[in-house]
């Protein structure tokens, strides 16, 4: 297991560098002159040249990229073109909000969706199943920012029971995390339902029932344990989508997180901050995928064996 984990961890390094490369390349192609932004219009040509050299933007692309990666390993995300400070200053203050929000949303999605999926599967083709399925299909398809606006209208404006914006208290996190979890919740519900259906028809459940295990134990112990694996995978795969969704949700709910920092930075052409936000998100997503893979391997030893033997996953 340790060996497997180590191998996966090592594999993260080239992937991360690849991610940085892709993001850096896109941003390299984005128009905009940082020096003019940083120095203002009164700068002398000498100062402009000096600053260009200091920022390293007259270097060739690969030199810039290489320096960026080296700096990154020491925790430096470069200088913001907007504030003139290190990007990490704003980025690191934004990260906790996004992480809290994402984790809450993930937890919420798992807690609600798995029972819902199970109920739908157990009561297949009955009203409960149709209700859950309808809810799930709407949830997967609903634009989250629209859901967010609707939730604010309902809970903050008409009912006045929850704050509409900000991060002042734990209550402020309720609406954004519900909104954020909406899509994921729905897709896990769908996955859980279909994997549960599959498992319930599996031979070993039939065997268990035949051997006199009660229906309840068969469903909630034997079947659920196996049917939960795809749900965890779906949660892991969609973690990136979840974090990406923060772009719109953090704007709607005025959460000063990474998503809002990203969209604000795009609007002000602050390329280093945009890169910082994307790289952070990508690394987080990679780590979560790693954790999910480990969980997966822990639950299902066949995968681990395959990975160790074949050296790669299909």
């Amino acid at each position: 297991m340790v060996k497997y984990a180590l191998k996966r961890l090592l594999y993260m390094i080239p992937v991360t560098i690849g991610v940085i490369f892709v993001v850096y390349l896109i941003m390299y192609l984005t128009p905009g002159d940082p020096v003019a932004l940083l120095l203002g219009p009164d700068a002398t040509p000498e100062l402009i040249e000096e600053t260009r050299a200091a920022l390293g933007i007259s270097d060739p692309f690969f030199v810039q990229f290489f320096n960026y990666v080296i700096n990154l390993f020491t925790g430096h995300f470069g200088t913001s073109w907007y504030t003139g400070n290190d990007v990490s200053l704003r980025l690191f203050s934004a990260i906790p909000y996004t992480l809290i929000l994402t984790i809450l949303a993930l937890a919420l999605a798992l807690i609600i969706s798995i029972p819902m999926g199970v109920i739908a599967a157990v009561r297949q083709n009955r009203p409960a199943d149709y209700a859950v399925s309808l809810f799930a299909i709407c949830g997967v398809s609903a634009p989250t920012f629209w859901v967010g606006i609707m939730l604010i209208l309902l809970f903050s404006v008409y009912m006045g029971i929850l704050p509409s914006a900000g991060v002042d208290s734990w209550e402020s996190y309720i609406l954004p995390s519900i909104t954020m979890s909406f899509n994921l919740l729905a897709s896990i519900t769908r996955t859980q339902r279909s994997s549960m259906l599959e498992v319930l028809r599996a031979d070993y459940i039939r065997t268990a029932k035949a051997k006199g295990v009660s229906n309840r134990v068969a469903v909630y112990y034997h079947a659920l344990r196996n049917a939960i694996i795809p749900s965890i995978t779906v949660a892991g795969i969609n973690f990136g989508t979840l974090m990406g969704g923060s772009v719109a949700i953090e704007t709607v709910f005025a959460v000063p997180g990474v998503g809002r920092l990203l969209s604000d930075s795009i609007k002000i052409h602050d390329t280093p901050t945009v890169i910082g936000c994307m790289v952070f998100t990508a690394i987080t997503v990679s780590i979560v995928n790693l954790i999910v893979d480990m969980l997966y391997a822990a639950i299902d030893p066949r995968i681990k064996a395959q990975y160790l033997k074949g050296g790669k996953k299909s």
């Binding site: 604010i152 404006v157 704050p163 509409s164 914006a165 005025a254 809002r260």
Partner: peptide, 18 residues
Amino acid sequence: FKVIPEATTRTIMVQTGE
């Protein structure tokens, strides 16, 4: 000074007393 980019949200926050 609270930073609220959305105009609608700013108005709602005063209406709700936030």
